[in-house]
Amino acid sequence: MDTFLQFFISGILNGGIYALIGIGLVLIFKASGIFNFAVGQLLLVGAFATWAFLKWLELPVWLSVLLAMVVAALVGLIIERLVTRPLIGQPVLSAVMALLALSVMLKGVFAFIFGPATVSYPADVLPGTPVSLSGASFSGELTWGFLIAVIVFGIVTLLFYRSRIGLAMRGTAEDHQLAQATGINVKHIFAITWMAAVLVAAIGGIIIGSKVGIGIHFTPLLGVKVIPVVLFGGLESIKGCFVAGLIVGILESIVGGYVDPNLMVITPYAILLLVLLFRPYGLFGQKRIERI
């Protein structure tokens, strides 16, 4: 039973981080109908920025993280302005391709600046002492990361559903032209969405980085796993993103623990295929309201 609990809870902890990264994808999809395929590389933005501030400028941890957040928001702003805004109104393939191209480009930039080797933070960003619970013990970074993920998730949800700007975002998500006719500056909304998305990706990247280190090859692969999560939850659903994150995390951990650790890598994609075949709009995705 203890091993089960161990797998179950570490699954939840992982899943929380998936959900956190996923919320960025959901926000972007809701606002602009674009699916952020570059999420894997965007994890690296925050992770590497923090590392650079810690290692090269030798700043304290809190300041490094704060500055990394600023960098992430700026990167989000730049992406919106230079990549996605010129492509508004283009076919889906262009948007997919643009974000893939962006991810390749970012990979080049990171490889150039930070090199292909895996690095880890010189100082503890998150406390690493394992947390033990009824005989099972869990990684300290993951536990703290999970708590942070839940808090950030809560903040984003609150902003989205309770604030004026959140209302404008939801309006924009539904109908761009109508939103403009109502006086919403749609471009600002897109920019804010991208900033928020890269910001949460950065937080996710820092959490993952403090647990397993940062590498231009394997960190993005962890990020790509979020794609099945978001789809499983329903592309437009914040709630779905959270639930699906936990489910995928748990399944992954249990499959990895009981069946075969190798299977862990593709569990999310197997789930993805099943979801696509049987329930493409996911757990909580919108089925369009059509009134005839």
Partner: peptide, 24 residues
């Protein structure tokens, strides 16, 4: 090492973006 690993992907991604935006 950085130049060797980074230059190709960077240029490739950049060129695709340029094509998508200016010559789809």
């Amino acid at each position: 090492t950085g130049i060797f690993a980074g230059l190709g992907p960077f240029l490739f991604g950049f060129i695709i973006l340029i094509f998508l935006i200016f010559e789809p």
